[in-house]
Nucleic acid binder design. Structure first.
Ligand code: MN
Ligand code: MN
Ligand code: ZN
Ligand code: ZN
Lengths: 168, 168
DNA sequence: TGGCTATTTGAGACTAAGTCTCAGTTGCAG
DNA sequence: CTGCAACTGAGACTTAGTCTCAAATAGCCA
C-alpha cells in the first residue's frame, strides 16, 4: 500500500476512535498534505485546494489541521514568521530547523546530543519537559557564497517574510 | 547613577546617534520598561501606562518597542503564546526559556555547552547563525508537586494562554 | 528667545491570521 | 431507510499589529 494511503488510514482510524466522521473534505485535505509533505501554512493549503477545484472552506482547513495535530500526524511549528506552519511528521521523527533569513530555505536537523543536553538542563531546573521548539536563524551556504551579510536580529523577521514571499 | 537612569541614557544616546528625538513618550516608556524588567507584552505595557495616567497611544508603544529592539536594549521573544513578548536584556546576556504550561511561569537559563552544540550543528550544515529561539514547554517543579500532568503538545498553546490569563 | 521644520504623536482605519456562529448538509448507526 | 449528531460554508467577529494623516513638538539655528 502506498504511504499516502496508509497515512490516510491512520487518520481515519483516529477519527473513528474519537467518534468523529470520515468526510470527503477531510479525506481530500489529508491526501493533499500527505502527498506533498513539507512545511506549509493554512493559506497555501487553501490555495492548493482551490487550484485543484476542490471546494473547502477556510474554517474546515483550520478545523482539519487541528485534528491532524491532535492525531499526531502533523506538527504545528513556528518558522520565524507571523503565522504558523505545519509539517507532516512521518513516524514521529522529531527535528528542529535552521532558517535562512535571506532565501527563506529551511534545513531540518536532529541532534541527539543537543536533545540530551536540553534534558540535563530541565533536570537541573526540576522541570518536566513536554516538548520544545528551536529555530536557528541565519544565512545558508548558498546565500553566504553569494555574499549575503547576516541581518541584525531586529530585521530578521521582516526579511524572512520577504524571502518567504519571493519563494511563492 | 541608578541602573534605570543609565539605561535611559543609553537609549537616548541611541536616539541621538540615529538622528531621532528624545520625546516625553519615549522616556516615560523606557523608564517603565527598565524599572520593572521582566517579560511583558505590548498590551500589558499599554495598560500599565494607563494606570499611571501617562497618556501613550498603542501606535507609539509599538513604535518605541521597535526602537528598543533596534537599540539592542530589549529583545522580542516568543513564549508559547500567539503574540510577542519583550524583555529588557541588561548587558547582552543571552538566555533561553523553560515555560510551564500549567501556571505560565517562565524559567530563564543560559547553557554554554548547549549553545556550543548549536554552533557545531550549524557548522556541519555550513549555516551561519545570526540568532536563535528556544522554548522548552512542560511542567515546573511547583506544579508537578501539585500533581499536574503534562499536557499533550496540541493542547499546550491553549493551556499556556489560560495560565497567562490567570497570572494577570 | 523665538521661529522653522523634520520628526513624532494619537485617533482610528486597516490588515492578517485565525476563531466562532448558525443554518443547511451529510455520514453513518440502528 | 431514517434520524440525528457531526460537519460544513459563509461570513461575522477577534486579536495583534500596522498604517495614515492631521495636529503637536523637539531641537537646531538666527
Ligand atoms: Mn520540519
Ligand atoms: Mn527571558
Ligand atoms: Zn539562503
Ligand atoms: Zn507551573
Amino acid at each position: 500500500m502506498p504511504i499516502v494511503q496508509r497515512e490516510i488510514h491512520r487518520f481515519q482510524n483516529f477519527l473513528v476512535a474519537q467518534g468523529l466522521k470520515i468526510t470527503n473534505e477531510r479525506t481530500a485535505l489529508v491526501r493533499e498534505i500527505f502527498s506533498t509533505h513539507y512545511h506549509f501554512d493554512a493559506d497555501e493549503l487553501l490555495f492548493k485546494m482551490k487550484e485543484k477545484s476542490v471546494k473547502i472552506s477556510r474554517a474546515t482547513i483550520y478545523r482539519t489541521l487541528e485534528l491532524l495535530v491532535r492525531s499526531g500526524l502533523v506538527r504545528r511549528v513556528h518558522l520565524g514568521e507571523d503565522h504558523y506552519h505545519y509539517e507532516y511528521v512521518s513516524g514521529n521523527s522529531h527535528h528542529d530547523h535552521l532558517i535562512c533569513t535571506t532565501c527563506g530555505s529551511v534545513i531540518e536537523f536532529h541532534d541527539p546530543s543537543l536533545e540530551a543536553r536540553q534534558l540535563e538542563i530541565c533536570e537541573r531546573k526540576k522541570f518536566t519537559p513536554t516538548f520544545h521548539n528551536l529555530q536557528i536563524l541565519g544565512i545558508c551556504d548558498a546565500c553566504r557564497r553569494k555574499g549575503e551579510q547576516p541581518a541584525s536580529p531586529d530585521r530578521v523577521q521582516m526579511i524572512t517574510e520577504d524571502a518567504m514571499q519571493l519563494r511563492k
